[in-house]
Amino acid sequence: MKIRLFLALSLLTAALSCRDEDSLTRHLACGVRDPLNNLPWLKAQMDDARQKKEENITTVVATEFKGQQYIRVYKMYMSCSFCALYTCDGNPVDMSGLSTADQQALIKQVTEGQKQVTLWPER
């Protein structure tokens, strides 16, 4: 009986400890742990912001839209909060390839969506 209980608890623990590697958390975005330091293009942008003393006016947000993750790098002096939107590989998002409805939905997700995580500033 004890062996069955142990096996059942072990299986339950293993199942609950599994994580979705594509999930979106403060420490995991674009399938990378610590994206601010482990995505080379994003690290370069943050290093540049620090060098220019702009890290205190920079916000980095990871968001998900239609199963894809994106990263928005926003500086307070920018007039467009979704203009610096990147794919996980660091390429700017080309909105012209999207339908008008998808463009509007993506902009809404980026600016006020539910599934997003602030990567910087650290809180």
Rank of each mutant, 00 (worst) to 15 (best):
R4W: 13
L5P: 07
F6S: 11
L7Q: 08
L9I: 15
L12G: 15
T13Y: 15
A14K: 13
L16A: 15
L16R: 13
C18E: 13
C18A: 15
R19E: 12
R19N: 13
R19I: 15
D20G: 06
E21P: 08
E21C: 05
E21K: 03
E21L: 07
D22A: 04
S23A: 10
L24G: 04
L24P: 07
L24Y: 03
T25G: 00
R26I: 00
L28G: 00
G31A: 06
G31E: 05
V32W: 04
D34N: 10
D34I: 00
P35T: 09
L36W: 12
L36F: 13
L39S: 05
P40Q: 10
W41N: 09
W41D: 00
W41A: 06
W41M: 05
Q45I: 11
M46G: 08
M46D: 06
M46F: 11
D47F: 10
D47L: 11
D48E: 12
D48S: 14
A49R: 04
A49I: 10
R50Q: 05
R50Y: 11
Q51H: 14
K53L: 00
E54P: 05
E54S: 07
E55F: 03
E55M: 07
N56R: 04
I57S: 14
I57P: 05
T58E: 01
T58K: 00
T58L: 01
T59Q: 11
T59F: 10
T59K: 11
V60F: 09
V60S: 06
F65R: 01
K66W: 01
G67C: 00
Q68E: 04
Q69E: 03
Y70S: 02
Y70I: 02
I71R: 05
I71T: 04
R72F: 03
V73Y: 02
V73H: 01
Y74N: 10
Y74H: 12
Y74K: 06
Y74V: 12
K75A: 13
M76V: 15
M78E: 15
S79F: 12
S79Y: 09
F82I: 06
F82R: 01
A84F: 02
L85M: 02
L85S: 02
Y86E: 03
D89F: 00
G90Y: 02
P92H: 02
D94H: 09
D94L: 08
D94C: 08
M95C: 08
G97W: 05
G97H: 11
L98A: 09
L98Y: 14
T100K: 13
T100E: 14
T100P: 08
D102C: 11
D102T: 13
D102F: 12
Q104T: 14
A105D: 07
A105Q: 04
A105G: 10
A105S: 10
L106I: 04
I107H: 01
I107M: 09
K108Q: 13
K108H: 07
K108V: 07
V110L: 05
V110G: 03
T111G: 02
E112N: 10
Q114R: 09
Q114M: 06
Q114P: 02
K115N: 06
K115F: 04
Q116T: 04
V117F: 12
V117G: 06
V117H: 01
V117A: 08
T118K: 03
T118P: 04
L119S: 08
W120V: 09
W120M: 08
P121D: 09
P121K: 02
E122S: 10
E122R: 09
R123I: 14
R123G: 12
